[in-house]
């Protein structure tokens, strides 16, 4: 499993496409995809929004992530960094933000590589660049 993170619109998806030779058909969008598609996809973007959808369906994102690791260990997960700001006023936003943090830690721990992309520039936080 490979995790790519960073702020919004920093070139995470473009980086993934280039480095891992992906085309548009290899990528599903966590904001809209069918949950089970994640078990066969090569790459998922907006995993932080996928987490929100799981929560709205009363599915534990960490337990779901364990299944992803078991069934699709080659997946590339693209997840925004969303925790660096003021604590949100809405309780549901606060819970989501904290859940994304914890789930992200779990994904990172189980990933072979973790890459942060900022201004299109990749930084390998875990694992080597190929």
């Amino acid at each position: 499993m490979i995790m790519i993170t960073g702020g919004a619109f920093q070139g995470k998806t473009e980086f993934a496409k280039k480095i891992f030779s992906l085309n548009d058909n290899d990528i599903i969008d966590g904001k809209t995809c069918v949950f089970n598609d994640i078990f066969s996809a090569k790459c998922v973007v907006n995993f932080h929004l996928f987490i929100k959808r799981l929560m709205n369906s009363n599915i534990d994102p960490i337990e779901f992530s364990e299944k992803i690791i078991r069934d699709n260990f080659q997946i590339i997960i693209i997840i925004n960094e969303i925790g660096c700001g003021i604590i949100p006023i809405e309780k549901s936003d606060r819970i989501w933000r904290e859940t994304v943090g914890r789930t992200g830690c779990f994904i990172a721990k189980n990933s072979e590589k973790v890459i942060r992309v900022n201004c299109s520039i990749p930084m390998y936080l875990k694992g080597e660049s190929k």
């Binding site: 960094e81 969303i82 925790g83 660096c84 700001g85 604590i87 933000r97 904290e98 859940t99 994304v100 943090g101 914890r102 992200g104 830690c105």
Partner: peptide, 8 residues
Amino acid sequence: TGGSKCGK
């Protein structure tokens, strides 16, 4: 330093 629930 870092964001919320990120292992600080």
